[in-house]
Design a protein around this nucleic acid. Structure first.
Lengths: 347, 347
DNA sequence: CTGTTAGCGCTTTCAA
DNA sequence: TTGAAAGCGCTAACAG
């Protein structure tokens, strides 16, 4: 029956168990394990006895119970389209690091670009009592209105700046970066440049398109609309159709700009399939850097988004709001870094 | 003073609030929102009134309070060396998906290969009351002995099978896969093959080394010990030193096997730095696939680990243990998939 | 069919 | 310097 008398248990103890075992009250125990022994002038011997017991048996304070009482969980939630995506994976890692450093934990969830899943994820995390939420939203954020439990959950958006979002937002400088890449490609290829993009309605992608268009306009490139090719989805296979359209011109593109690494992967596959290799004089521009790009036998420009910077801004904003700062619907823009490398193979 | 009378609040309600507002008891409300209306034969009108109220005002059940009472959190924890690493990112995504599908949430933490951080992460997650824990351990798992709160936290290890671990473990078939890659490289390069590796003491890497050695032995390759080059850490920059040793022979290696993508990246950088391009007849074998590998101008073999398979096995094992199944210290081996692609550039 | 009650382990306030 | 008591929102067992 009662195989568990409290003293035979292995594993860490609760505060009440320690109190009973040492003969002091819960309050006293809590003061010493909470590091408030000095402040409450606990007798040295009392303190020593309690600390010895803890050292011997261990202690894990139950955050569940603590949260219930204090109405805060020291946890923050993250909702992204896809955790396996390199950008979001790095963002997750950076946020997790900041959580750890401040004694918090990170709860993660993926929306797979599905607003319903996103809503479920948010509700689930809020129900778990997260103090704050970082979301890379897959739709205009109207759905977030009523979700905040008692209005107490802080919220910041990342990666996608929907117009007139009421939430603070942190994004990369997509338009400026796209402008820089495009201008350079146009310069290198004498204006003969194509853009391969997916999900043009996402704010981040729309900004990249705008940057591309502005650069083309600035350089006087004609018929730029015919040079913008939209894939059905942001995955390598979806790049096949638009690439077929490009290759139907009967020659390799001179310069190719991609709005994501996945598009680039798809494009390269198609080129390799068509020509047996990557055309030597091709120039490529892309968003999101990957070290393997350096080994490709083409001239390549990429923009590395500043995940640590984005994470830092988002986290700081979130913490400020959790600490009671008024929410401001500002959009923080974090610059990326342009990486240009001459082609290695022809060097 | 009392600006909040309970009915003026916006946002979802607690069960007690709904009970008071509708005039029924908490039990009744709980039965209908918990989908147990049928089972307890709640009057249809009662049910309709409650459901209407919920539809109008929303409801978020407080998992914090529920957990405190039920002693389970419907949450599982994941501790990996680095969330940004592509393999672990995919594993995380797969686990998160399985959590979502079963109404759980995933709490993530990184150890950065530091046993102390790992212990902190585990303690933090256990303190949060996770029902189960998936860990890619960075040291022999002796430290996990006492951590399980009340002995109730299920635990399964992934990616690294330490000898005589008392916990169920799920890993890739590193040795067999390495054997296959090595055998093929030896065949293609007439036995002229080098291995670049980091962290040879990790069980996964040790297994890959063993597979390499066995293949070399089987093919009668001489002086294989001289062909194994160890980097100081699993990061591209650390590959510089061992690559320098290889290149000091005055010629490009014929076949190069890497125990991780990061090693491969470092190796390719060095080759490009040395020769201005990748040597045309180089053959490369590596662990962990990446789509960009397909665009490299070298013949390449890679083993794609089966993250969904690993996640599925780990999750199933964890759920079984949480459901009361006895813990078995078995090691599940999930086969990877060998991807071989002829060189695109010389094709 | 519906309501009452007693805690889960913690923090907080008040008392001694 | 220490202790007692109330209660966070929920579930579970038992009464009607």
């Amino acid at each position: 029956m009662n195989e568990d008398h409290g003293s035979r248990r292995s594993g860490p103890r609760t505060i009440a168990e320690i109190a009973e075992a040492t003969g002091f009250s819960r309050t006293t125990v809590r003061f010493v394990v909470g590091g408030q022994a000095e402040r409450h002038r606990i007798k040295a011997e009392t303190r020593a006895r309690i600390e010895a017991y803890v050292a011997a048996h261990g202690l894990v304070v139950d955050h569940t119970a603590r949260s219930l009482r204090t109405r805060r969980s020291e946890a923050i939630g993250l909702v992204v389209p896809d955790l396996a995506n390199a950008f979001f994976a790095r963002l997750t890692a950076e946020l997790e690091e900041r959580c750890r450093a401040t004694g918090r934990v990170l709860l993660t969830a993926s929306s797979h670009e599905d607003p319903e899943r996103e809503a479920q994820a948010v509700a689930g995390l809020v129900g778990r009592g997260v103090d704050g939420l970082v979301v890379a939203p897959c739709r205009p954020p109207s759905a977030f209105k009523g979700i905040r439990r008692g209005g107490r959950t802080a919220l910041v958006m990342v990666d996608r700046a929907y117009a007139r979002s009421p939430w603070p937002t942190v994004v990369s400088d997509n338009e400026a970066a796209a402008h820089r890449i495009a201008a350079r490609l146009i310069e290198l290829a004498g204006g003969d440049v194509d853009l391969l993009c997916a999900c043009p309605d996402l704010p981040s992608i729309a900004d990249r398109l705008a940057g591309f268009r502005a650069a083309a306009r600035g350089a006087g490139v004609p018929a730029i609309a015919d040079r913008i090719h939209v894939a059905a989805g942001d995955e390598p296979a979806a790049a096949a159709a638009p690439m077929a359209a490009i290759l139907a011109r009967g020659r390799s593109p001179r310069a190719l700009m991609c709005t994501s690494l996945l598009m680039l992967e798809g494009a390269l596959s198609e080129l390799v399939a068509r020509f047996g290799r990557l055309p030597e004089d091709l120039v490529v521009g892309t968003f999101d850097h990957h070290p393997l790009l350096d080994a490709l036998p083409v001239r390549i420009l990429s923009v590395r988004q500043d995940e640590p910077g984005i994470a830092e801004r988002a986290f700081a904003t979130l913490v400020a709001e959790m600490a009671g700062a008024p929410r401001e619907a500002v959009c923080h823009v974090v610059p990326g870094r342009l990486v240009e490398r001459g082609t290695a193979v022809t060097g």
